[in-house]
Design a binder for these strands. Structure first.
Length: 230
DNA sequence: ACCCAGGGTCATA
DNA sequence: TATGACCATGGG
């Protein structure tokens, strides 16, 4: 009962939903801000916060880095965890200011760049990879809660697997292509939002024929524990 | 009145 | 290293 290969899932999702054109942002910096603000938060709330930043003319690296913490928090309040995220935004903005100005941030190897991003307080694996993929054009596969949920449903792996294991799973099964990774992650999110909520019922899901848990059969099926083969 | 959302950090054992 | 608490708003 081998699972349908990731690239097939991609083709199917692309056929159903079409190109998503992610990430929705007017600039790389806006994209990065969005990546931080959307941590465990609905995108709708993030849109409100970003619109508010724009309304206050604060969607700027230097301005955020030097802004008053409380005031910044108020502006992004709608995104939730707003004081924590205000700190994260300042830390990141300082990092970006120090490194984007002809320091050659765009010339660093992806792995080095990733480590630098991870060293910023408030930036974990998913946020770092999102920034790499959508703001810095690095071919990196982003793993998020939707990715886990969808491919767990499709029986590719167990939900318990950590970030790096899951990323490696896709890395060894997909060609290293920037547009592929950009579209795939976007498609996974758009699809999972609609059809892979917490309930195990996927009526009318376009992937239903490939999804063992579709149509609410409720049947628990034995899943592979480790994706690593080679 | 719940449940959840495009995570990450920190304290504890 | 592995689990749990915490952060907090807005929509369903």
């Amino acid at each position: 009962m081998s699972s349908i290969p990731p690239v097939q899932v991609y083709k199917k999702l692309l056929a159903v939903y079409g190109p998503q054109g992610w990430w929705p942002a007017d600039s790389p910096f806006e994209m990065m801000v969005g990546a931080i603000l959307t941590q465990n938060t609905s995108w709708q709330n993030v849109e409100t916060a970003i619109a508010n930043l724009k309304a206050h003319n604060m969607l700027d690296c230097e301005l955020i880095a030097s802004s008053n913490l409380q005031q910044l928090g108020e502006v992004i309040r709608a995104s939730g965890f707003y004081m924590q995220k205000a700190r994260y935004l300042q830390q990141f903005s300082l990092f970006y200011y120090n490194n984007s100005k002809r320091k050659g941030l765009s010339k660093w190897p992806t792995s080095i760049l990733r480590n630098r991003l991870l060293a910023v307080h408030g930036i974990g694996p998913e946020t770092a990879d999102s920034i790499l993929l959508y703001a810095l054009d690095r071919p990196v596969f982003v793993v998020d809660a939707y990715t886990k949920r969808l491919f767990m449903r499709l029986e590719h792996f167990d939900y318990e697997l950590g970030y790096d294991s899951i990323q490696h799973y896709f890395k060894q099964r997909l060609p290293e292509s920037l547009p592929l990774f950009q579209e795939f992650h976007a498609l996974i999110v758009e699809h999972a939002k609609r059809f892979c909520k917490t309930k195990p019922l996927c009526s009318r899901c376009p992937l239903a024929s490939d999804c063992p848990t579709a149509m609410g059969s409720g049947a628990e099926i034995n899943r592979p524990k480790h994706p690593d083969v080679d």
